[in-house]
Structure formats: structure tokens, C-alpha cells
């Protein structure tokens, strides 16, 4: 399988071509996500994603194919303010 290079939260990663944003995020947060990107265990995700500086809504993760050179930012709540 061909691999693609992406930037994830300021790190370089290689992924299999054809990986969707939903599959990628599911792996990162360690939660199984259904086709609507709802956690299988019913928990709130508490994360959001932007690709190349634009927010990708959760409803679009399943159909979003990652490609060579994509820059993905995955964010969550942190102490602050």
C-alpha cells in the first residue's frame, strides 16, 4: 500500500493512502468512532480538527480522505485563562 506524508500537530507522520480523517482521529484519541464520528462508548470526544487551517466539522470526518502534504491540527481543552 502506498504511504502519504502528513503533518500532525507539528510532527511529520506517514499514513496509508486512503486513510480518512475519522480513522486517523479514532486512532489518535483511542476511541472507536461510528460513521457519524460519534464515540461507540457514548462519551463526548472533546476534540476538534482543522486541515490546512480550515475546520473540518465532525460530520465530514468520515468522507474526508487524507492526502500527501495535509497539515492536520487536532485540539482539545487545556488549562488556561
Amino acid at each position: 500500500m502506498t504511504s502519504i506524508g502528513i503533518n500532525f500537530n507539528s510532527r511529520q507522520l506517514n499514513l496509508d493512502e486512503g486513510t480518512t480523517l475519522r480513522e486517523f482521529i479514532s486512532t489518535q484519541i483511542g476511541k472507536e468512532l461510528d460513521a457519524n464520528s460519534v464515540a461507540a462508548d457514548g462519551s463526548k470526544l472533546g476534540v476538534a480538527a482543522a486541515v490546512n487551517g480550515a475546520v473540518v466539522p465532525r460530520s465530514a470526518w468520515n468522507s474526508y480522505l487524507l492526502a500527501e502534504g495535509h497539515s492536520i491540527e487536532l485540539v482539545t481543552a487545556a488549562q488556561g485563562g
Partner: peptide, 11 residues
């Protein structure tokens, strides 16, 4: 809360 990069360590 602030919004920052997700890290598996502090998930």
C-alpha cells in the same frame, strides 16, 4: 479553558 493540541498523554 484554553484550546491546545491534543496529546494522547494528557488526553
Amino acid at each position: 479553558v484554553a484550546i491546545r493540541h491534543f496529546s494522547a498523554a494528557g488526553a
